[in-house]
Amino acid sequence: MRYNRTRNIDIQRYIDRTKKVVQRELEKALSKEDILDVDPGKKVKIRIPYIDEPYFKFYESGGGGSGGSGSGSGDNGDPSEHSIELELTLEEIADLLFEYLGLPNLKNKGEDELKEKFRVWGVTKSGPKSRIHRRKTFYEMLKQKRIDHYVFRYRDIRKTEEPIFSAVVYLARDYSGSMTEEKKFRVRSASFWILNLLRRLYSKIEIKFLVHDTSAKFCDEHYFFYSSEGGGTTCSSAFELIESDMQKYDIDNNNFYIFYFSDGENDPSDNSKLIDKIVKLSSIVNIIVYGEVLDKTNTYGYYYQGTLLKILEPLTKNYDNIYAKKLINVRSFLMDIFYREGEK
């Protein structure tokens, strides 16, 4: 039916017009819990404000005057009354969001594997009927002033080769008793968007989760995000385990990412070992990120130690690929790591 075609085009163009508004709304969704729990492929509802077309309108004192009609920012009147709900899949949300944030800005290594890709490109004199190029054929007819099989032109399909980059991502965290529910949620939220971002970049990606107290171990995703146990803290154990695990891979042709989350507590005698490990690993991996997770109790509290951040921050000045950041806001955390990668 005719409606279906025009309807879909109209809806798509409306969404394109409101793209910036949608993206602004999505930015709020970065730290919302309901998005983190959505299964891939399922749709999430996002509410966006109504955008007016231009027309002559009376001046209303006390608002509405500055709303640019039809320009993409026209949020006139009560937004709750006119708001529209859009259904987007997680992939679409990630696409829109990362485009808006301008992420990521990463350099890749390793091109040993090439992927064959076919695309419609150019014109040939032979081919199947389904690929007849009508405009070119018509043009040839006029040019040669005849109609036979010599005038037919076909769209060509050509083979191109694109390199495949592969990545190994290590997500590590301290699972000692001091990691509260709020801190774990922040880790989960940041990890969710980091993995989403990296999955979009690499078709071949391996994600490894590990937790540690005084010794480190690999675990599954659920255990990584939800577990917490008592005990001391030796951070270098995690990096030791990562280092030994990395021996399994071809170092030149893989991109390694290490994300380590902790609340900043470490055994003081372990600090020098930790720094050595991190410096050693930084020559191999693309990025090493340390995120110091804080919650309301210790963000501004007087007993906030933050030992690790103080120790690791000096390293970030000397090494391009070492990051040490506080993880309070997911958006700024992501922007700090990925957006400034190219500039650094």
Binding site: D52, P54, Y55, F56, K57, F58, G64, S66, G67, G70
Partner: peptide, 11 residues
């Protein structure tokens, strides 16, 4: 009449 500037300009 008194018009809304943003709307009038776009129109």
């Amino acid at each position: 009449d008194t018009l809304d500037y943003a709307y009038a300009y776009n129109t």
